[in-house]
Design a protein around this nucleic acid. Structure first.
Lengths: 190, 190
DNA sequence: GTCTATAGGCAGATAGAC
DNA sequence: GTCTATCTGCCTATAGAC
């Protein structure tokens, strides 16, 4: 289990990656904010690449838990999709980009273990959404063209892009507008 | 007018930003590739920030010309939208992210002049798309809910997000699938 | 676990010769 | 316009004391 200091390092590094990118922050940034030395950070996370892996793993696990909660607490596919979009909205409200959306932009500069963890995050999202969409189609509460997989991908792509652009423009309403349209595109007619 | 060397610098730097990000390349990278020295680059573009501004300006101008060509050569709004999505697909085929989508991710780390130029790029796209959408609605060839502006934003967001994710996954087909759905969402029923 | 100190490299940028 | 040489600062990372 990750101790208190390691956890605080991850919290700070996560926020810095989500706002500035993996190539836009340094150990010095994290150390200054936590009032410790860079050497101390290296004790917990020997290299920046290992810190990056830990960040993605933790983010994915937290996201997976949030999806489990949505499944446990909400009933209809339409409401679940609203809640799913709400997860992204929460991140953006903090002026942050999705961690893995940010890292996807920097993909070419990242070590392989980080790349693979990013892919797993998107797979996780796609699999969950695909399940919700397939269920909604079976029940007749959702309607969309093409496969559940393609529809799931369009929703992920749309939410990631909406975050990317809305954050740059400082326009949370823009994200909400695009998110609403995305959900409506499968809750209404296909 | 930009001379031959300056133009070659812009070409190389543009590709590096689109693949690695503004914080993921250096003057040394460009200099090595062009077989000149860093000092020579600084003669043409005194600071990296000024180089960045020039990159966005040139990219926006080229994009605006492409939109003009679409207007001049194609007839119906639906076909124009397909061509618009095709502009993004061309960029992605080169394994590149949209320049301004990439810079939007790094937005927080960029100097103000670059930020403003990025916003102008998105405004340019939005205004053009909005015009196409409004025209299509008037003529009855396009159908969508909400304002042309909101529909335009959703298309931009969707294409940028599809590029972001598809490039990381090395999956051009994924981009094409999402792009097709986006266009179909306004060419078919709203 | 956290520190001081430091290594070794690369970053963006400038001076001045040619 | 392009070069050599150099500056200053920050980067990731390590050694070794406490």
């Amino acid at each position: 289990m990750v101790g208190g200091t390691a956890s605080a390092i991850l919290d700070t590094a996560e926020r810095l990656v989500q706002t500035r990118g993996f190539n836009g922050f340094s150990y010095a940034d994290v150390a200054t904010e936590l009032s410790v030395t860079k050497a101390s950070l290296h004790y917990h996370f020997p290299s920046k690449a290992e810190l990056g892996e830990s960040l993605i793993d933790r983010y994915s696990e937290r996201f997976a838990r949030a999806l489990d909660e949505i499944d446990a607490e909400l009933d209809t596919p339409g409401v679940k999709l609203d809640a799913y979009a709400g997860l992204y909205a929460e991140v953006l409200r903090d002026q942050r980009m999705c961690l893995c959306g940010m890292l996807a932009a920097e993909f070419e500069t990242l070590p392989s273990p980080m790349r693979e963890a990013i892919i797993r995050f998107f797979d996780l999202n796609e699999a969950w959404l695909q399940g919700i969409l397939a269920q909604g189609r079976r029940e007749g509460t959702l309607s969309f063209s093409g496969t559940p997989r393609d529809a799931a991908r369009s929703i992920i792509d749309g939410l990631e892009g909406a975050m990317l652009v809305a954050r740059a423009r400082g326009d949370l309403a823009r994200f909400r507008s695009t998110a609403r349209r995305l959900v409506a595109s499968v809750v209404g007619a296909g």
